[in-house]
Design a protein around this nucleic acid. Structure first.
Length: 494
RNA sequence: GGUCGCGUGGCCGAGCGGUUAGGCAGAGGUCUGCAAAACCUUGUACACCAGUUCGAAUCUGGUCGCGACCUCCA
């Protein structure tokens, strides 16, 4: 299809801009992935789900997209200076790489559960140590780094003096960045300025993960991997860089400094930041315990929810807010979204059963404009809540056709075919929502249900209400809801 | 403390200068053996106070409240 105009809210310029790819028809997108030292939590899921919908939208629009999302498996330090992965390894008595593998696997599994597409490339920091060493050298060669006792620091003052861009993304002024914390374990005292940051760190003897470098046996700074891997796989300047907005500072700010410091060019044209998932009005965060794991949410095994919510219901809940807004997770909101999600999915099944009759076109405009608006809203900075609102206009139409409140002869064959073809695509391909309440893939169950509903229909025809209700109530106990319509009955899981 | 953002009807959540967001819940109705589902109708909403404007939830200033970042976090 023809690529439509796309507008993005660029965090760097803080304004909505028309998207212009570097190469016509192609997009390079880099998203900061997880640090795999424990199970993913819902906040991660929201971010990666948001970027999944962005990725899907770009693909739908016809772009060839190279989507790179890294796995951070080294260099991400805790307050006390211990590497997150090493800490995980020590606690679980595993090799660091076992920790990495274990949580990478569970991360992938969760991403599958949320029906997200896999990135084109998923590079790991430890697989790019050589490239990181090279970039440290480039930064040194360009005069933006200095070595202290085997560690290499980025010289933010010098960088700012030359380039005058440090702080542009995060809105920070370098002179305000005086860190009052002691932080001696992070070797603050070696820095010339508090805003300087390590790009290579000399490892303590007991450190588990370390590599040889021209400066010391050590490991790369956390921010470096993204600069290096985005450059390697997408080029020195690519189209879109994304991540959670808690990464804006210092991570993304430093990434920009490193890229510019190394190659004198900006890493990307558009920065996209997703907002935080809240619970009880506070940021959901692993480190302060205000959190619910995806599994707890699915099973309902948490004081924060009254019952379990399915992955797709949770995903739908997330998509009902804009990626750049905070989203407050509450039991009531989840319950409301769950119903809306089911109604949307049911419309898909209903549409399948619809057959076009003779042609009129009274309703063509309404149907087509709802479908058009879906895409228009997605192209307006991926406005999923508005796009979904357009979808619900279509839901009402579909249900009305089925119930006979509207007549299918009021739309042309052309519009009807578009509806049949595009509407499911918008839900499946673009939003990545799948129907998990559908017994449709289970032939045996479908056969049984057909028989059961048939028997009930006979009972009803004989006005044998006792039998009819017995069947209905019995099925209800198995979480199957029977719905009587004009043209017979159908069913769905409750 | 510094920087940024937010405050929308019962709940969630879009919109951001004039026109119905949407979902859920509630009320009334249609349909139905009953129920459910579905459809139709239905909501004094935009923290507060000033100001700009023919017109403000939407712009400006102030007040109050909340949150995020500044330190590991998507």
């Amino acid at each position: 299809m023809k690529i439509k105009d796309l507008y993005l809210q660029n965090s760097l310029s803080k304004s909505k801009e028309k998207f212009e790819p570097i190469s016509e028809g192609y997009i390079g997108m880099y998203v900061c992935g997880p640090t795999v030292y424990s199970d993913v939590h819902l906040g991660n899921v929201r971010t990666f789900t948001s970027f999944d919908v962005i990725y899907r939208t770009l693909l739908f629009l016809g772009y060839k997209v190279r989507y790179v999302r890294n796995i951070t498996d080294v260099g991400h330090l805790l307050d006390d200076g211990e590497d997150r992965i090493s800490r995980g390894a020590r606690l679980d008595q595993l090799e660091p790489m076992e920790v990495v593998q274990k949580y990478t696997n569970s991360f992938h599994k969760m991403m599958d559960i949320f029906n997200t597409k896999k990135p084109s490339i998923e590079p790991r920091a430890t697989q790019h140590i050589l490239e990181q060493i090279e970039m440290v050298q480039q930064i040194l060669d360009n005069g933006y780094g200095y070595v202290v006792d085997g560690s290499v620091y980025f010289d933010t003052l010098k960088f700012q003096e030359d380039k005058k861009i440090y702080g542009d993304l995060s809105g920070r002024k370098i002179e305000d960045l005086f860190s009052e914390t002691r932080d001696d374990l992070k070797k603050q005292d070696q820095k010339r300025h508090p805003s300087d940051f390590a790009i290579w760190m000399k490892a303590d003897p007991e450190h588990l993960m370390k590599w040889n470098s021209p400066w010391s046996e050590g490991f790369p700074g956390w921010h470096l991997e993204c600069s290096v891997m985005s450059t390697k796989y997408l080029g020195e300047t690519f189209d879109i860089h994304g991540g959670g907005n808690d990464l804006k500072f210092p991570h993304h700010e430093n990434e920009i400094a490193q890229n510019v410091g190394a190659c004198n060019c900006k890493p990307c044209n558009y920065w996209l930041h997703t907002n935080m998932l809240l619970m009880n009005g506070k940021k959901m965060s692993k480190s302060d315990g205000n959190t619910i794991s995806p599994d707890e949410l699915f099973t309902g095994d948490s004081p924060h929810v009254s019952k379990g919510y399915s992955p797709m219901a949770v995903k739908f809940f997330m998509l009902q807010s804009h990626y750049s807004s905070t989203l407050d997770l509450t039991d009531d909101a989840l319950a409301a979204s769950e119903k809306g999600y089911k109604r949307l999915m049911e419309s898909l099944k209903t549409l399948e059963g619809l057959n076009h009759k003779s042609s009129g076109n009274d309703l063509d405009n309404e149907v087509n404009s709802s479908l058009d608006e879906f895409i228009a809203h997605m192209c307006d900075d991926f406005n999923t809540p508005r796009a979904i609102a357009s979808l619900f206009e279509v839901v009402t139409k579909i249900n009305s056709f089925k119930e006979g409140h509207l007549d299918l002869s009021q739309i042309s064959a052309e519009t009807f075919n578009r509806l049949k073809e595009d509407y499911p695509k918008y839900i499946d391909d673009v939003l990545g929502l799948k129907n998990e309440n559908d017994g449709g893939n289970n032939d045996a169950l479908n056969g049984i249900m057909e028989l059961v509903l048939d028997l009930r229909q006979e009972a009803r025809a004989n006005k044998d209400w006792g039998t009819a209700d017995k069947i209905r109530d019995g099925l209800a106990k198995s979480k199957i809801v029977v719905k009587d319509g004009k043209d017979g009955s159908n069913w769905q899981f409750s």
